[in-house]
Nucleic acid binder design. Structure first.
Length: 489
RNA sequence: GGGUUGGUAGCUCAACGGCAGAGCAGUGGCCUUUUAAGCCAUAGGUUGUGGGUUCGAAUCCCUCCCAACCCA
């Protein structure tokens, strides 16, 4: 190398050019992978005597060169494998070329397995193929990447060098897999509703708007999965679920990303009580199948126990306890606002009566619900899609499952009376009658079976189960402002 | 939207008004059981951006950009 040795990219491009001039393809398409790193270790442990030839492939993450031999670490989908590469094994000529490889290059390696003096299962290389020359320098091996912006913008680097991150996203995939398996085992059908909706229903949230040229009209991105899954109930799919992305054009925070993943499921001929059992069983399934434990730990070390019996409390009871006021629900809005001040929470005085109470729930109660808690029977004003409780028609036959100070899963006895549903919608949309999903009412008029329904925030569930501190730690590519501050102000 | 903190070599971090440094990575050597390999040598900087104060600015002040945390 010459005067440009300080520029790593230039050095590597020179190496690339040298390989090409020798007639080698630095991006060879051919590479055999008979075993992953962990599979290779496993077969060796099963039978250390037989000299089995294996082919592994992956990225060089460490290069320890010692004259006529070198140890390298190869990173692949399930971990790392050490390889021992020597002039003896490869031949003088191939070894001379091998020595010029870099950390970051992707290789295929073929050889036999052995155990080093230090006891590590290692591949003794007989041949290698360079399949991708890396032209850029990887982040440091020991500290990895720690700059959060860098981690989110170039997640691929985070995944290469930060093993915690790699494991967390593998765990997320396992969680999704086991949720599906759990529901498939209970005869649920997975379906897919529309992302573009002319009336974004099923929740109260500010939607994203977009224009569809083919139909020359505006659509919203869905904010919930609910109304189309209920149409599936009408259509006779009496156990359905959808797991997918929903979009809410609201704030970003430690707990919110504008696009996030939800699962919603609907089971006919049951109710919110059935959903309680289902979500409990689901969490037990995830604990045993994915975590191997019913206990999870937050970043601050606090333990959350997901086994055993979960606490259940009614919304009203929770409010009475939090406010220490047995007459709370007969107080005037002014009295409630005064009480909120004493509780130390800021509440917008323009809010309606039930919204003031709900502020108490969100700010004083929900954050304290660390261990799993079913909060049942929320006031009817908070949701238009659930059935009223027959004994107390001011509340709904619903629960919100709270864990880790967050709402993880709301579930309802679903409203299937088209007259009540229409009244509830009308109260919600007020004058904006065109914002009512009339086709949904029509569907209910054909008859929807009684059903229990539930939504689970997958990202929050992953935060809980992986012990993550931030929603961005469980979303591969979280929403960020484009580099250079693109877009309007 | 408000407040706080941060942005320095490829990465992780020092320097906090007076010559911009270290470790790893890189480059050139030595080294056939290492594993944050080791030893010797060596290159690498428009200190996020634009302005200001100053004899002198990475450092102090202001604008803007990006991010994190807290609050709304």
């Amino acid at each position: 190398m010459n005067e440009t040795t300080h520029d790593v990219t230039a050095v590597r491009q020179a190496k690339l050019a040298a390989l090409r001039s020798e007639g080698q393809d630095p991006f060879s398409a051919h590479c055999e992978q008979s075993h992953s790193s962990q599979e290779a270790k496993h077969v060796f442990e099963q039978d250390p005597e037989t000299l089995l030839t294996v082919s592994v492939a992956g990225r060089i993450t460490a290069f320890r060169l010692m004259g006529k031999a070198a140890f390298i670490n190869i990173l692949d989908r399930d971990g790392t494998l050490q390889a021992y590469v020597s002039a003896d094994g490869l031949g003088q000529e191939a070894y001379a070329t091998f020595k010029k490889l870099d950390i970051g290059d992707i290789l295929g390696l073929t050889g036999t397995l052995f155990k080093t003096q230090a006891g590590e299962i290692t591949l003794k290389a007989q041949a290698y193929t360079l399949v991708a020359k890396s032209l850029r320098q990887l982040p440091e091996k020991w500290h990895g990447l720690s700059d959060s912006e860098h981690i989110y913008r170039q997640r691929y680097l985070d995944l290469i060098v930060n093993q915690d991150s790699r494991k967390r996203f593998q765990l997320r995939s396992r969680i999704l897999q086991e949720i599906r398996r759990f529901l498939w085992d209970r005869s649920f059908t997975e379906v897919e509703g529309p992302v573009f909706q002319s009336i974004p229903g099923g929740a109260a949230a500010r939607p994203f708007e977009t224009h569809m040229h083919a139909l020359n009209c505006n659509f919203y991105l869905r904010i919930s999965l609910e109304l189309y899954l209920k149409r599936m109930l009408v259509g006779g799919f009496d156990r359905v679920f959808e797991m997918g992305r929903v979009f809410r054009n609201e704030g970003l925070s430690r707990r919110h990303n504008p696009e996030f993943t939800m699962i919603e499921l609907y089971q006919a001929y049951t109710d919110y009580r059935g959903m309680m059992r289902l979500v409990y069983d689901l969490l037990q399934h995830l604990c045993t199948q994915v975590l191997g434990s019913t206990q999870v730990h937050r970043p601050d070390g606090l333990a959350i126990e997901l086994g055993g019996t979960w606490r259940e409390i009614s919304y009203k009871q929770a409010i009475l306890e939090a406010t220490a006021d047995s007459q709370w629900f007969s107080r005037s809005p002014q009295e409630k606002l005064e009480a909120c001040k004493k509780l130390g929470i800021q509440v917008d005085p323009k809010l309606q009566d039930h919204e003031i109470t709900h502020n108490v729930f969100e700010k004083c109660i929900e954050p304290t619900l660390i261990q799993p808690t079913f909060v049942t029977h929320i006031p009817k004003e908070l949701c238009p899609l659930a059935k009223l409780n027959p004994q107390d028609p001011s509340v709904l036959d619903v629960f919100e499952l709270c864990i880790n100070g967050q709402e993880i899963a709301p579930a309802y006895s679903e409203q299937n009376d088209p007259f009540i549903q229409k009244t509830m919608f009308a109260a919600q949309v007020g004058e904006d009658i065109q914002n009512m999903d009339q086709d949904f009412i029509t569907a209910l008029e054909y008859g929807m079976p009684p059903a229990g329904g539930m939504g689970i925030g997958i990202d929050r569930l992953c935060i809980l189960l992986t012990g993550a501190a931030n929603i961005r730690d469980v979303i591969l590519f979280p929403s960020l402002r484009p580099v250079g501050g693109g877009g309007e102000s």
